[in-house]
Design a protein around this nucleic acid. Structure first.
Length: 105
DNA sequence: CAAGTGACAATAA
DNA sequence: TTTATTGCCACTT
């Protein structure tokens, strides 16, 4: 079942490009691909759900908030994961994008 | 093939 | 400030 379209692979590659201690947003990824639809990026990540293949926990909303409902063990688990990566949280579920938002070169 | 749904983002009120 | 609506485009049914 090679339903894995190159588009999805593209998203995975971009997310994997994000270094530890940094985060990115769906909008940034979408723009980096030349599109405006951040939803597709979200779908691509949801289709994977494998943090070992793609660190989806580093991808957050444009507001810096974590994705809703993607939780793979609990919302607390996701936040804890980012903290271990070195991400600084401004609020309970909000990261400091102004300081740690990775910009695709 | 057509309609509905959605791990979002931007704008309006 | 928060909540609601619209737009975007792939994926599912």
């Amino acid at each position: 079942m090679d339903t894995t379209l190159p588009f999805f692979q593209r998203v995975y590659t971009l997310v994997k490009r994000v270094p530890v201690g940094y985060v990115t947003t769906y909008g940034e990824i979408a723009k980096a691909m030349g599109t405006k639809d951040a939803r597709r990026v979200g779908h691509a990540l949801h289709a994977n759900t494998d943090a070992t293949t793609v660190p989806c926990h580093r991808v957050v909303f444009s507001d810096g908030r974590l994705a809703s409902g993607y939780v793979f063990g609990g919302p607390d688990e996701q936040k804890n994961r980012l903290e271990l990566e070195g991400i600084t949280f401004i609020s309970s579920n909000k990261v400091d994008l102004s300081a740690q938002l990775y910009h695709f070169v």
